[in-house]
Structure formats: C-alpha cells, structure tokens
C-alpha cells in the first residue's frame, strides 16, 4: 500500500531570545532570563490570556510557540479543529519538578504547592494549548535524549494515516534551567513543504 504524502504548512522557533515564523524573525527580546523574555513575547503578540501567568516555564514556552503558529492559521471558533498535539523534549518537566522537590525538602518548611505540583507533568502544556484553542484532539508527550525527527515524523504521520487527526501540531519544546528551545510545525494533508524526516531536520 502506497503511503500518502503530507506537508508542513508552517513552523515556528522560539530560542536564543528570538521568535521566528517560517524562518522569518518576528521578535528579538533582550531579557536577562527566560521568565522576563517569555513575558515580553506575550506582550509583543498581545495575547490577553491571564491564565498565561499561572503557567510554569515549560507551558509558557509551548503555549507561546503554539500561539504564534496557530494565530497565523486563523482557526475558526465554534468549529472543531481536529489538530493533534505531538510534542517531545529532553528534560520532561524537570524544571518544575525541582521546584516542587525544593518545597518538600525541609521538614520545617514543608509546603508543597498544588499550583506547582500540577505542572510536574510534561503533558500539562498540551492541556494548556488545547484549552486555549479548543482542541478536542489526540495529545501525547514523548521524551528523548535529543531532537528526534524520525519519531515525530512517524508518529504524526500515523495519526494522519489512521484519520485520528486532520492536522498535527508537532515538535520539540524543551526547558531546563536557563536553556530553552521550542520548534513547532504544523503538518497537514494540504500543500506545503513535502513532509519527511529530512524536511523536519532542515527546518529544525
């Protein structure tokens, strides 16, 4: 059976203080650290979503990358956008895990925070994006030692093969102490760059 071909419609990067869409730089921040930088990104793109400030760093990063990409796609409200989310990274939710860990380390100041604990799962960022864009869709979060285009390619293609999704928002969203990197792209059956492992790696 011949496998159908899919296409990359658009892609977005957030790394090194820079936000870019389809390879074009949209914003360069000069924050001294990630929280300041990502807040400036939020302001720049005029998101107006107070829940953003409750998110942990990984969710903020994933949320803003999805925001930049999906805003361009002009998702219709009131319709079901069956866009699956397939994300991967290296550090899982360790950035927030360490925070929760610190809050329970000392018996004399043992105050675990529910608002921190809830983010000690990497897939929470998928939930945040689903809520914002009303995506009732397939979600999965994977962990690898490094960027793994092959996995992203096969897994997202399988969702399209099996008609589990119309499109797939796919990519790498990693945050570990001061290092952060988001690379998301949208795969669909429409026209665009022909979808392949090679194409993913060249855009990454």
């Amino acid at each position: 059976m011949k496998k159908p071909t899919y296409h990359i419609k658009s892609y977005c990067h957030i790394r090194e203080n820079t936000v870019s869409l389809n390879g074009v730089e949209l914003f360069v921040g000069n924050g001294p650290n990630f929280p300041v930088f990502i807040k400036s990104v939020y302001k720049k793109f005029k998101v107006d979503y107070p829940k953003f400030f409750k998110m942990d760093n990984l969710s903020k990063l994933a949320f803003m990358a999805a925001e930049v990409l999906l805003t361009k796609e002009n998702l219709g409200s009131g319709v079901d956008n069956n866009i699956a989310l397939v994300f991967a990274n290296r550090a899982s939710s360790l950035d927030t895990d360490r925070k929760h860990g610190a809050s329970i380390e000392d018996d004399n100041s043992y105050y675990p925070s529910p608002a921190v604990f809830v983010y000690t799962l990497p897939n929470i960022c998928l939930g945040e994006i689903s809520i914002k864009h009303k995506l009732f869709s397939e979600n999965s979060f994977f962990i690898f030692d490094g960027f793994n285009a092959e996995h992203l390619f096969h897994y997202s293609s399988s969702l399209l093969d099996l008609n589990k999704a119309e499109e797939v928002l796919c990519g790498w969203v990693d945050l570990d102490e001061n290092n952060y990197e988001a690379f998301l792209y949208l795969v669909s059956k429409d026209v665009g760059t022909k979808y392949s492992v090679k194409a993913i790696n060249s855009l990454y």
């Binding site: 929470i124 998928l126 939930g127 809520i131 589990k164």
Partner: peptide, 18 residues
C-alpha cells in the same frame, strides 16, 4: 483513541467530553 477535554488542567470535564 485519545482526546483532550480542552477544559481544565487538573479538574475533570463536567460533561466528560474528552
């Protein structure tokens, strides 16, 4: 099949949508 509730990050959906 898998489906997100698109409702809340910790509270289950009231309608069980996902």
């Amino acid at each position: 099949g898998t489906c997100n509730d698109a409702n809340h990050i910790s509270g289950p959906s009231r309608s069980g949508e996902g």
